[in-house]
Design a binder for these strands. Structure first.
Length: 183
DNA sequence: AGATTGATCCAT
DNA sequence: TGGATCAATCTG
């Protein structure tokens, strides 16, 4: 007998684990955004992990600054930054407080089937901007992530180097991008 | 391939 | 305080 699972808001304990584990498990979860027009849902289909103070691709690799201190914060909060003066990028902070790590959400699939491919396009569609940084995703208000019971196997995902971090030397080659196959 | 755009960071 | 840089996207 199948167990029907009602959507579960991901708790802090989900995010407070090794970032690569959280990144893989975020595939198939749903990003939800409540706005004036109702609730928009997107199935997360691509993410990238930024892990620890040594990761030279990570904004946190040059230490704690006003911008990056959120990456050192508690798991389950958001880090949203502006890139190239034009686009926002939405990240989820992971691991224990004091350890800088986050996951960039790069693509989602809407319930209509439309693919929102790219972090800037995602933030534009979901109306996410820097004002949402430090938002707590575990409260189910405005912005949260749900488990709807879907499980993604390792062979259903593509693993590849992260995009746009060629400056990061050996860190640029780490296969810390995860994307569902066959989109 | 080149333009766009402005917040951020550090030193020239 | 100036200038290089940038976890992207669009247009050609």
């Amino acid at each position: 007998m199948a167990i029907l699972m009602s959507p579960q808001i991901l708790p802090r304990s989900f995010y407070d684990r090794p970032t690569l584990t959280v990144a893989k498990e975020l595939l198939g979860k749903y990003l939800l955004r409540r706005g004036d027009a109702g609730v928009l849902a997107g199935r997360i289909v691509e993410v990238e992990a930024y892990v620890g103070p040594e990761d030279r691709a990570s904004h946190a690799s040059r230490g704690k600054t006003k911008r990056t201190e959120v990456m050192f914060g508690p798991a389950g909060i958001t880090y949203v930054y502006l890139i190239y003066g034009m686009y926002h990028c939405f990240n989820i902070v992971t691991e224990q407080e004091g350890y800088p790590a986050a996951i960039l959400v790069r693509a989602v699939e809407l319930e209509s089937g439309e693919l929102i491919d790219g972090p800037g396009r995602l933030c534009r569609r979901f109306d996410i901007s820097r004002t949402h940084t430090w938002h707590d995703l575990t409260l189910g208000k405005q912005l949260w992530v749900e488990d709807r019971g879907e499980r993604i196997t390792a062979r259903a995902m593509l693993r590849a180097p992260r995009i746009g971090v060629e400056y990061a030397g050996e860190w640029a080659t780490k296969p810390w991008r995860f994307r569902l196959k066959g989109l």
